[in-house]
Each structure stands twice: as C-alpha cells, then as structure tokens.
Design a binder for these strands. Structure first.
Length: 517
RNA sequence: GGCCCGUUCGUCUAGGGGUUAGGACGCCAGAUUUUCAUUCUGGUAACACGGGUUCGAUUCCCGUACGGGCUACCA
C-alpha cells in the first residue's frame, strides 16, 4: 500500500526564481526528504513567448546554493524523463488525442480575435463572467458545431486550432487540500480550458497532469495561485481515468509585500533595498545584475532557515534549524494558511545568528570574497583579519560589514569624535596621557589583560576616573566611541600601532580644540 | 463583477470553549561601576466586526468588513 513519495518542483523558465518559488521548492524538498521520497526538478517551458534561456541554469544554481538536492531532473537525469516539457511534446499530443477520441475534448478554430470579440460583446451586455463553456461553446467555431467534413477539411488544410477540454456542467468537484481542507467548486465555474495550443504545445493544465501522472508524482505542493484551477485538474484526472492515482494537493500561502498589499515582486525589493531572489540575476537589457541574498552577504543556511519560517513553524520555541533539523521537524500540517509578509529585519537577524557561530577563519574568507583587494590595499594578512573577527563577530550582520564597521582596526581613523575631544581632552590632562602612553610603550607583553591592568592602575593613581581615561583612549585608537572592548582593540592593534595612534590622536585633539577656542 | 482562500501584538507566529493569550523580530527602558552595534533583564503591543450555539467564545457556526488569489492559446 505504501508507495514511494514523489514530489516535483516545476518552475517555468520565464526569468529569475522568486523567493516564493524557492520556498515552494524548499517545502517540497523537506517533505520529501523526511519520508525518504524522491524530489525532482521539472522545467515547464511550454510558453515559447516568455521563454528565457538562462532561467533553467539559474534555477539549478539557486537550488544548489540553498542545498536543495534533486533526485531527478533536467540536470541529473532519472527514470522518468525527459524532465523538460518541450521535450515531451509528443506525449501530450498522444494523450490529448485520447481525450478527443473519447469525446472529452474537441477542436476549436476560433481565432484569438474572435474570442476577444465574444468577450467584448458579452461585456457590453453587462456580463463580466463570460466563459467558453457548456453555455457558449455551441455558438463558437469548433468540432461540436461544425459539420464533420468541414472539421476534417480545416484540419487537412492546416488551419490553426486548439483542443479544449469539454467540461460537463453542474458537477460538484471537491479537492481535499492538505493545507486548507475540503474545497468544493461547481464545474459551471470552470470553462473549457485550452489543452493544446495552436503551436502544438500543451498548456500548463494538460502538461502538469500528464507529467505528474507519468512521473508518478504523489504530492503536488505548489503556490496558492493554483488553488482555483485545481478542480479543473481533478476533472482532467477523471477524464483520463487516473483519478485513483491522483496526487494529493497542498497549496502554500503566498509571500506578500512588507507593507501589506499584494504578492512580493522584484520591484518591491528594488524599492525597499533588499533582494527578492536567492542569487544574482541579470534582467534582460540590464547591464548590472541585481543582487540576490547570496551577494548581499547571506549565508545559505540562514536564508533557508528564514525562508522555512515564512509560513511554517515547528510549534516549539526553537528557531535556529539546520537543513537536517528542518527535515526532521517539517510537516505539511504545520504550514500556515494565511499569507506571510516578508520581513527583511528578521532575515538579517537569522544571518547574525549564523554569523556568530562561524569560525574566524571562515568569516575572513567570506569577507575577502566580497573584497579580495583588501589584503593588499590595507597591508594586512589573513591572521590579522581573523583577529578582527574575534572582536567583531557579534556586532555585524554580513561578513563584508567589517570593512566599514571595523575600518579603524585596519587603518588609523580619519575622523575623531568631536564631542569626546571637546569634553574630555583637557589641558591639564594632556601630560597624563603622555605618561600613559609611556607606560604602555614599556609593556613587554601587550596582551589585552596586561593592557587592562596597566591602564586600571593608571586610572587609580591619577584619580581621573574610568570614563575620562577609557573614552579618550578609545577615541585615540578608533576615532569613535563605539566598538568592542578597548583593551582587546589595543592588543589586536599591537603596541607600536597603539603608541602611534596615541601620539597622532593627542596632536589632532589639540588642533581640534584650538579650532574651537 | 464572478469564484476561491484567508484574518491572534507593527511583523513572523504558538495556542485553543474557561489561559495573567505564549515565543521571536523590531521598538523602548534598565544592567553589564569604559563605549555600543554585543550580552542579560524588564517593558510596550494582538484574538477585524456583528450575530448565533453555549453556563462560558478569541477558539465552533453564519453573516459583514478587510486582505489576497484566480478569472489567457501565462505559468
């Protein structure tokens, strides 16, 4: 009784892969992995007008980056291929012929112009609900209305035609959706959808049924936008006589714009300054690729973790999950029904969590990947960058942030906090800082704790107070009042550099105060 | 317009006929007798509305409102 679970991710190669699509792939993958089934990638390239050649490769790279492995697909093969619908054309024609032969489908010769005219005329009469269905098909030019010889003649002459499914009116069609429960719709709401287009290609509706059936798909997990056409799909399974092996359906809620209205789109990302796709994508005609999450500095594990939680949760309070943990925890029952607004802040938070757990060396490599010239430009070595990570790990979101947020650890500061200088760089204290510099210069072991001991002793002896000394010292070293422990910074910079920065700071502080006087 | 789906803090969500309605992000406030961008502690804040059913409804049912999706020879 227990058959192997088989699921598919079936994007259409019309452009980049949106994160909503990617989340569908993720859920599909998690569900399938959990039960030990097969997950496959099928390319639905039946629309020749919108076909974008680069898209297929992009899908593959995007899935790869996320760690979503396909058991079968265009790129890895498998026993149920071909996995590209354009390579399966004959199959659809064969099956659609079966529908015609059993009078469940028919030829229709109406041109797009005629259809448009029909809809327009109906609209004029106040009918916004016109369909090509049981009510109207007898007024159209098709094999149900035309004499048989004429139909034959038209076909022989090579007249353009489509094949439409003949929907029987007044049937209640019920779908048991795994996310939403029972959804019932009357077949009067469904029109005689085109199955085979005039270019000989199938429509999505036909192709997805034929493929899901012949690829032995057991669970169709897809976006909510497909829910309204699912009853049609059920009717198609029925028409083919495949209802007993029909897959189960699970329709996922949509990912919405952050401010609420509508599906998230690429334009939202551009407008609000965050990516809406996993990896960089070059739009046709654009000279610059648009950044993806990867390019922005997201770790794929963080991205996947974030995505998994957009519309699903384990019901526990754990939030950080590896792919393996997600696989264990995932169930379709825990997918939420309502759409989720995209929250970039939360995405960043996930990245911070993962960043903290990376080793210094890993982070150095990651940061260098964004700016390989830095080593030479700043005259530093990787070991030094590792040291910076030791101090900065908990204070940044993306690996490349250290180049800006910790710039003062790579080069002497070029600005100094004016407020601190004005308030704390007092005439009478200048010699004391000169003294402090000498003390530090005399240290043999310039470790963080040693520097700390030395400075604390100095504070006690001079009675200057922590704030007055440490604040000034920090600004001398970093220019800013923000940052990690001063003692750690001093140790990392090294004695020589600290002494240099103290001298330079004192000189510039004097100048700054002179300007104010 | 028609059909379908949805609605718990600003956001992601847990929960479920009787709860102080829980967590996370964000935000705010204190603490870490050096900074804050870290860490810790605390705080702010939600069951869309109206009818039922019920001893009791945020939870179940029905409406309404609002949001979303679909309505192509696109997927």
């Amino acid at each position: 009784m227990s058959q192997q679970v088989r699921t598919r991710f079936a994007p259409s190669p019309t452009g980049y892969l949106h994160i909503g699509g990617l989340r569908t792939a993720l859920y599909c993958y998690l569900f399938t992995r959990k039960v030990g089934g097969a997950f496959l990638l099928r390319i639905e390239d039946t629309d020749r007008k919108r076909y974008v050649p680069e898209a297929e490769d992009y899908f593959i790279r995007a899935l790869e980056w996320c760690g979503i492995q396909c058991d079968e697909g265009v790129h890895v093969g498998g026993d149920y291929g071909p996995y590209r619908q354009s390579d399966r054309k004959e199959l659809y024609q064969k099956y659609v012929q079966q529908l015609v032969d059993t009078e469940k489908a028919y030829y229709a010769f109406d041109t797009p112009e005629e259809l448009e005219a029909m809809r327009e005329a109906a609209k004029q009469q106040g009918n916004h609900n016109i369909k090509y269905d049981a009510k109207t098909r007898l007024q159209m030019r098709n094999s149900l209305t035309l004499p048989e010889e004429e139909v034959q003649q038209l076909l022989n002459d090579g007249a353009p035609y489509v094949i439409r499914i003949k929907i029987e009116p007044n049937q209640e069609v019920t779908v048991n959706d795994l996310v939403r429960g029972l959804v019932t719709i009357n077949s009067n709401e469904i029109d005689d959808k085109v199955m085979l287009k005039s270019d000989g290609m199938p429509t999505y509706h036909l192709a997805n049924i034929v493929d899901d059936h012949s690829m032995k798909i057991t669970h169709v997990i897809r976006g909510e936008e497909w829910l309204p056409s699912t009853p049609l799909h059920v009717l198609l399974y029925r028409a083919f006589g495949w209802e007993d092996t029909m897959p189960q359906f699970a329709h996922l809620p949509l990912i919405l714009k952050p401010e609420g209205k509508g599906k998230l789109s690429k334009r939202d990302g551009d407008r609000l300054g965050f990516p809406v796709f996993p990896i960089a994508w070059t739009e046709e005609g654009a000279d610059q690729p648009s950044k993806g999450f990867r390019e922005m500095g997201f770790f794929s594990e963080a991205f996947v973790n974030f995505l998994a939680f957009l519309g699903w949760n384990p019901g526990t309070e754990q939030e950080i999950f590896t792919m393996e943990e997600l696989t264990d925890a995932f169930t379709i029952e825990r997918i939420s029904k309502s759409g989720a607004k995209f929250d970039f802040n939360k995405a960043k938070w996930f990245n911070e969590q993962y960043l903290k757990n990376k080793s210094d060396a890993e982070l150095t490599e990651a940061a260098l990947a964004y700016a390989p010239e830095k080593l030479e430009e700043l005259q530093i070595c990787k070991e030094y960058v590792n040291g910076v990570w030791g101090l900065m790990k908990e204070r940044v979101t993306f690996p490349s942030d250290i180049w800006t947020k910790a710039a003062y650890l790579f080069a002497k500061p070029d600005t100094y906090d004016a407020k601190v200088v004005r308030k704390k760089w007092k005439e009478e204290r200048i010699p004391l800082f000169e003294d402090l510099k000498k003390r530090l210069a005399a240290l043999d072991d310039f470790s963080s704790t040693n520097v700390e001991t030395s400075i604390k002793a100095f504070i006690e002896e001079t009675g200057l107070g922590f704030g007055n000394v440490l604040q000034v010292f920090r600004v001398m070293l970093a220019g800013t009042t923000k940052g990690p422990s001063v003692f750690d910074m001093a140790a990392l910079l090294g004695k020589e550099e600290v002494v240099e920065r103290m001298e330079r700071g004192a000189k510039i502080f004097d100048e700054m105060n002179a300007l104010l006087a």
